[in-house]
Amino acid sequence: MKPKLALYWASSCGGCEIAVLEIKDKILDVDAFFDVAFWPVAVDFKVKDVEAMDDGEIDLCLFNGAIRNSENAEMAELLRRKSKILVAFGSCAYEGCIPALSNTTTREATLRWIYEESPSTVNPDGVRPQLATETPVGTLRLPEFWETVRSLDQVVDVDYYVPGCPPQAHQIWGVLEAVMQILEKGLELPPKGTILGAGDRTCCDECPRERKEKKISGFVRIHQTIPDPDLCLLDQGILCMGPATRSGCGALCVAAGMPCRGCYGPPPNTKDQGTKMISALASVIDSDDPDEIDRILDGILDPVGTFYRFSMAKATLGRVQIHDARAASETAEAHA
């Protein structure tokens, strides 16, 4: 009997699913080796089919997407129970990614924007989704939207991580090929918690640009300048997350002229991408004068959104604490 493979998406954009198909005809090798037991985006199995399986019946589950509502959490628990190897696949499952940027605000503010205030919304009665709605055909239920977005391992036990937004095809194939060999030959699995499909250095180490560790006297945004094609972007005053990002993508963005945004997560021996980036930036800013330093730092428009764009669910300082009286009182009302 072939080993069973499952893929699932929770709170995600779907990019990780497409990334799996980026391995091109190798997907046929995957299909030849595995029995695809569950993959909602591609194969028509239902949740009840998974529920009917024995615990541990799925050999490998690649789980992408963050956990932002009660349904995501239920699926995470179900697939954890049914899978021998559960992989947090892609940045959302690994560390929250873009969905977790809403940890910079409240659920109430998010829902208010989406259902009332955004310019394209017409909702004069202020209708909001309800957990349960009575209809002639019975009660309709919706998952509960959480205050705080979680990574997969903040909700269930995770065996391995594959970083990237999305993981790059050559890395995905590398991981799948290795797992297939291990399962086929009965070899030993890597230690639990290992980060698969990535390098063990920083993005800068893979970067083709020349880095002179030049001191900078101001930041510019990428649309305000035409960067030199061969020199380090950070040396040119462009905020590049390369020094605080794990290698593995092959320095894709920087090679194409865009600064690294940090999607491969913190480098080895670092848990927090943001504080790591602060260290890196402090080394390149060319001033010893407090006022001048502040003037240069004013050029970093959104420190949290820039430094934790992909890792907000894992920030050491937690989710953002909201002091805004309006959000607080409305949150209280919503819970009354």
């Binding site: 504080t275 602060i278 402090a282 001033s287 330093i293 420190p303 949290v304 953002v320 604490q321």
Partner: peptide
């Protein structure tokens, strides 16, 4: 300033702390 045993260490700290305080404030702390 000027007295660091390793010459530059405290200037680096100055820049780090200025940025760190901004970050901390953005976290609502």
């Amino acid at each position: 300033p000027g007295d660091c045993h390793y010459q530059e260490g405290n200037y680096k700290t100055l820049r780090r702390v200025h940025l760190l305080r901004r970050l901390v404030a953005e976290f609502g702390i």
